[in-house]
């Protein structure tokens, strides 16, 4: 069932104006969409990061739904605690309402410092969705490298320099890691494909048990792109197969989108300031290597999804 924007107009605003995320930030867009994708009452946990600090600067909060921030690495454990409280109180007849639980964490709080708590929460089977808004680095604190930073990008802790082309390693396949917990639902989505994203959000929230969403969340500031290019850059991520859209629904791998003609990775690289050093002649082999890795991964993914 497709979402119709005209109908979404009537949905309550769970993340209000007056938050202090940067102009053009992807995070509030995806947060708003996800919370519009369901009619269930939601409790939200948030890892330390851009979305958390910018939406709750005391004494202000942009959240119109119950919300908790605990620390950086423990959003999954925190929401697990909230969900456990709900489960216990419901069982004892102290709460009647059906409630759903989501956690937002950036890639730093998810791929890196929070992965243990995430893994534990997924394994224990809490009825929750963990959403990673992946902006590919520690952007809140000035673009330090994370496990999600792509190869070749320059960050402030693994910068490009005379003898370095920036990050040497590929980013982790966190969606596959989440899926390896054999949870009911895991998926990867992007802002360029909103119907796909909202359908995935609805499925993830409404499925009984743990779910995981990995959403590419452009950071205009530190990807060094214009403020208005948030959606366009997401499109390029998908069209170059840098960020494939797929889901693992009860163990079944499904490729949601295949570009008619895969665009060269150069299209994604050349428009972002964080990659500008790669355009130097000497770094041509790096781009070739990145292209090869993306094609190989997509090939693997296609095979995985055709089983």
């Amino acid at each position: 069932m497709a979402f119709i924007l005209k109908e979404l107009l009537d949905k309550p605003e769970k993340l209000t104006s007056g938050h202090r995320l940067c102009p053009g930030c992807g995070a509030p867009i995806l947060a708003k969409w996800i919370m519009m994708a369901t009619d269930f009452p939601l409790v939200v946990a948030n890892a330390t990061g851009c979305l958390e600090v910018s939406t709750t600067i005391y004494p202000y909060t942009a959240w119109n739904t119950p919300w908790i921030h605990n620390a950086f690495e423990n959003a999954a454990a925190t929401i697990a605690g909230v969900e456990s409280a709900y489960k216990s109180l419901s069982r004892q007849g102290k709460i009647k309402k059906k409630v759903k639980f989501i956690a937002f964490g950036g890639d730093g709080g998810t791929y890196d410092i929070g992965i243990q708590a995430l893994s534990g929460a997924l394994e224990r089977g809490h009825d929750m969705v963990y959403i990673c808004y992946d902006n590919e680095g520690y952007m809140n604190t000035g673009a330090q490298r994370s496990g999600a930073t792509p190869k070749g990008a320059s960050t402030t802790t693994e910068p490009a320099g005379k003898v370095s082309y920036g990050k040497k390693m590929r980013h982790k396949d966190l969606t596959a890691i989440a899926a390896a917990h054999h949870i009911p639902y895991a998926a990867q989505a992007a802002l360029s494909n909103w119907q796909d994203l909202m359908k995935k959000a609805k499925k993830a929230i409404e499925v009984d048990g743990p779910a995981f969403l990995n959403i590419l969340s452009p950071c205009v500031r530190f990807w060094r792109i214009p403020d208005d290019q948030t959606i366009e850059i997401s499109k390029l991520a998908v069209e170059t197969n840098f960020w494939p859209l797929f889901e693992i629904d009860n163990g079944k791998w499904i490729l949601n989108y295949k570009p008619r003609e895969r665009k060269p990775i150069m299209d994604w690289i050349k428009v972002q300031g964080r990659y500008k050093h790669l355009l130097q002649e000497k770094n041509k082999p790096v781009i070739e290597e990145i292209q090869k890795e993306i094609d190989e991964y997509f090939h693997w993914l296609e095979k995985r999804c055709s089983d």
Partner: peptide, 8 residues
């Protein structure tokens, strides 16, 4: 913070 959405 008890005043939900007061960021407005």
């Amino acid at each position: 913070i008890l005043d939900a959405g007061n960021a407005k």
